[in-house]
Write a protein that binds this DNA or RNA. Structure first.
Lengths: 222, 222
DNA sequence: GGGCCGACTTGACACCGTTAGATGGCAAAA
DNA sequence: TTTTGCCATCTAACGGTGTCAAGTCGGCCC
C-alpha cells in the first residue's frame, strides 16, 4: 500500500498542534477524574462532575474515552505501572527470603499510600486489567508485581530454604500476597468499626510477614 | 394510662391475621432480595426487580424497609448471626492452638459457601453492622465471630505457647483473620484473571494457617 | 473562499432510588 | 347495613445517573 512520504516524516504542523491539544484535554480529564475518585470515591463521582471540573460537558468525555469504565481502566493501568515500579525499586536483593520480606513491606506501603487506587486495583471485581487482542494482559514483565513475587518465591524454594510442604510457588506466592492484602483491605473497609480495636496495619503486616516466613523456613533463626 | 385488657391479652383475630400477612410480605421481600443479591450482585439488583419478582411495585418495599440500605442491613444481620453460629459450632475444643486452626477453617468454609453474603459483610465499607441507640453493635456475644477469635488467641497467648513477640492478642487475631480474609477476597475478586494461576483457596488457607501457626509457636512440632 | 473534519454542546433516553398522593379493600363503629 | 377510617399497595413524578444522536462551530486544506 502506498503511503505518502510526508505523512510519515512531516505531518502538517497544525495537525500536530491539534493532536497535542486533544492529548491535553484527555490528560485534563484523567487528572480531574483521579482527584474526584480519590476524594469522593469512584462510585460517587459522576461524568458530569468530572467534566464540569474542567469546564466541559459530560458528553465531551466520550470523545476521549469509550465509557466510564474505560476511564477507570486508564487510571488503573498507570497505578499498576507505579506498583510495578515500586517493586522494581526493591531491586535485586540477593537473598530471596530477605527480598520477599522487603517486597511485602513495599507492597503494603504502596497500598497504604494510595488507598483509593488500591481499592479499585484489588478490591473490586477484576475488569480494570487491560487485555490485548489475544486476551492476554498488556503489561511489561518489568512492571508486573505478581511476577516479581512469584520469581522471588520460586528462587527461595529452589534454594531449598523453605520447608518441603511449601513446594508450589504459586500457592506460596498467593499465601504471602493474600496475607498482606487481607490486612490492608480489612482495615480499609472496617477501620472505623467501633467494636474492633485495630492494630496499626503496617505493624500487623510486619508481624505477619515475619511470622509466616519463620513458619515457612526449614531452619528458622534462633 | 388506661389500657383495655383485651388489647393486651386478646388482640382481635383480624389484627393478628393482618400482621401475619404483613410479616409474610416482608419475608417475601427479604427472600427475593437475597436471591437477586446472590445471583446478579448487590449493586445490580434494583428495587423494581426485587418487587416485581414477588408481584409488587417497587414503592411497596418502602412500607417494610426504610430504604435499600436497611434491606441490605437486615440480610446482613442474619448472615453475621449465621457466621457466629458456625464459629460456635466449633465448640470448646480444649487446646486453644488447635481451636484457632479449626476456627480459621470454619470461617473460610462459611465464606466460600456464602460468597455473595461474605462480599457485603466484609468486602464493602462498614455500615451494614447494626448499632444500638448507644452506638454499640447489637450482637449477642455468643454469636460474635471476632470475639471468638480474640478469646481463642488470648488463651493461646496466656498458655505461653506463642513466641514472646506475639504478645498483643488483637494484633495476632487480626493477623490470622486478615490472612484468611485476604485469600478469600483476593480470589473472589480476581479468580478469573487469566494472568494468575490460582491455587484452590481452601488449600492456600490451610497452608497459610499451618505455616503461620508454626511460625508463631515457641516450640513448633518437628 | 468553500467544503470538510472533528472537538464539543444540546437535548434526549432509559434507568435508578425515592417520595407524595390516590386507590381500594377490609375491619370496626354507628 | 351503612358509614367511617385505616393501611397496604399503586400511580405518577422528581432529581439523579450513564450514555447516545444530532447539531454547532471554528480552524485546516484545497
Amino acid at each position: 500500500m502506498f503511503v505518502n512520504a510526508s505523512t510519515l516524516s512531516d505531518p502538517s504542523p497544525s495537525l500536530v498542534r491539534r493532536e497535542r491539544l486533544k492529548a491535553e484535554t484527555r490528560q485534563a480529564i484523567l487528572d480531574a477524574a483521579r482527584e474526584l475518585f480519590v476524594t469522593v470515591g469512584i462510585e460517587a463521582t459522576t461524568m458530569r462532575a468530572i467534566a464540569s471540573k474542567i469546564g466541559y460537558t459530560a458528553t465531551a468525555i466520550y470523545h476521549h474515552f469509550r465509557d466510564k469504565d474505560a476511564l477507570i481502566e486508564e487510571l488503573c493501568v498507570a497505578d499498576f505501572t507505579a506498583l510495578g515500579q515500586a517493586m522494581y525499586r526493591i531491586g535485586r536483593i540477593e537473598d530471596p527470603v530477605d527480598r520477599l520480606r522487603k517486597l511485602g513491606i513495599a507492597y503494603a506501603e504502596f497500598a497504604l499510600a494510595n488507598q483509593s487506587q488500591y481499592r479499585f486495583m484489588f478490591m473490586t471485581p477484576q475488569r480494570h486489567i487491560p487485555l490485548d487482542s489475544y486476551g492476554m494482559p498488556v503489561q511489561k514483565p518489568d512492571e508486573d508485581a505478581y511476577e516479581f513475587l512469584f520469581q522471588t518465591v520460586s528462587e527461595g524454594i529452589d534454594s531449598g530454604r523453605y520447608r518441603s510442604e511449601l513446594s508450589n510457588p504459586h500457592e506460596v506466592s498467593q499465601m504471602m500476597w493474600a496475607g498482606i492484602h487481607g490486612v490492608i483491605s480489612l482495615w480499609m473497609t472496617h477501620c472505623d468499626d467501633k467494636y474492633i480495636a485495630w492494630h496499626p496495619p503496617i505493624e500487623t503486616i510486619r508481624t505477619l510477614i515475619d511470622t509466616t516466613i519463620r513458619g515457612a523456613l526449614r531452619t528458622p533463626p534462633a
